[in-house]
């Protein structure tokens, strides 16, 4: 079995998918971080021009906000949990002032997270699809499936080895995405920012976001959490792509179908958000990171656990169907 997995990993590597993915990633990340840096510098310039100050006085603004928060947190009338969330913001702002860090400067740690947040619904699934789409379909289109399936190995083992190889490559790819976004954006921003504190841990209560349970953690931990969610989503997408790749004959149609599902799903979410069924579609649940950032309008009945459950059901269903189809399929190429 290990030999089979090794073979499949070798096939993926030799097919030169990774360089293609790397090039796409580098172009995208390079453009985005350049753009973000440019926008930031322009904003600062504009601010300075308007206010007539020679330097952007972030300390002033931050201190002002800090005083305001401290004043409110003294207020007896404010309930305890609310005060706790003020305190967390105060702590966060104090860190920025003590370490002389402008809270709005772009940093590599912020960029890799926002890249993951933006990419998790479309761009990252696309990269996964490039990896996964021809896993099975290319064996059919190159007709090599014949030499693969006439060995003394049962079919389910062949497919399982392909799936495990795909999981291995997906895991590496998520890591590569994280590393690339961090390194490339550091080139532009010249700031790591991994030790800055950030607020997370929003919970849903009665259909609304609840920040009572929030905690303050350093950015590097936060990045790890975000990328773990990206990893999970990637595995789900890989599993679904595997099924698509098994049903259609060419990798181009497999990528096409997946992209159509992703974009169509977002349309559905946008236009038919009231429709109960939409929240059971996998695309609607891909954006797991928003549950950590707390930057979303909660949808009735959707939570991190709900989304994870729905995605798992989709992935397990896809894998099950894949094995059934693959086991029964007549090879007539």
């Amino acid at each position: 079995m290990i030999a089979l997995v090794r073979n499949e990993v070798m096939k993926i590597l030799l097919k030169k998918k990774m360089p293609l993915i790397m090039i796409l990633l580098l172009i995208f990340v390079g453009l985005l971080s350049y753009g973000q840096n440019y926008a930031y510098e322009r904003n600062i310039d504009q601010f300075e021009a308007e206010s007539g100050e020679t330097a952007f006085d972030w300390q002033g603004l931050t201190t002002q906000r800090l005083d305001e928060l401290e004043e409110r947190s003294q207020n007896e009338a404010i309930p305890g949990e609310v005060r706790a969330s003020f305190d967390r913001e105060i702590e966060q702002l104090n860190y920025f002032i003590e370490n002389d860090i402008n809270p709005v400067t772009p940093t590599a740690a912020k960029f890799n997270v926002s890249f993951a947040e933006q990419g998790i619904t479309l761009f990252i699934p696309l990269l996964i699809a490039i990896l996964a789409a021809d896993l099975v379909s290319s064996e059919f289109s190159r007709k090599t499936i014949k030499i693969l399936l006439t060995r003394a190995v049962p079919r389910w083992k062949v497919l399982l080895s392909k799936y495990i190889a795909l999981l291995i490559m997906t895991t590496l790819l998520v890591f590569i995405i994280g590393i690339t976004t961090t390194l490339v954006s550091y080139l532009f921003f010249q700031e790591w920012g991994f030790s800055e504190p950030i607020v997370t841990g929003f919970t849903l209560f009665e259909g609304t976001l609840n920040s009572d349970s929030t905690i303050l953690i350093p950015r590097y931990q936060y990045t790890l959490l975000i990328y773990s969610l990206v990893w999970f989503v990637s595995i789900i997408v890989a599993s679904i792509t595997l099924l698509i790749s098994l049903i259609v004959d060419t990798s181009a149609s497999a990528i096409g179908i997946l992209m159509a599902a992703l974009i169509g799903g977002q349309f559905l979410q946008f236009f038919l958000s009231d429709w109960e069924l939409v929240k059971y579609f996998f695309v609607t649940n891909l954006d797991l990171t928003r549950y950590l950032t707390g930057s979303y309008q909660p949808v009735e009945g959707m939570s991190l656990n709900f989304s994870i459950l729905i995605l798992s059901v989709w992935a397990i269903g896809s894998i099950a169907i894949s094995f059934i189809v693959f086991n029964r399929r007549d090879v007539l190429v």
Binding site: L167, I168, L172, G201, L204, I215, S228, L229, L304, N305
Partner: peptide, 24 residues
């Protein structure tokens, strides 16, 4: 490296679930 990363990701994933707290 895939094995190690997978372990790290599983750890991060579980942590995410815990800190986001189940609605229930």
């Amino acid at each position: 490296s895939a094995l190690i990363l997978a372990l790290v990701f599983v750890f991060g994933f579980v942590t995410s679930i815990i800190i986001s707290g189940g609605e229930a």
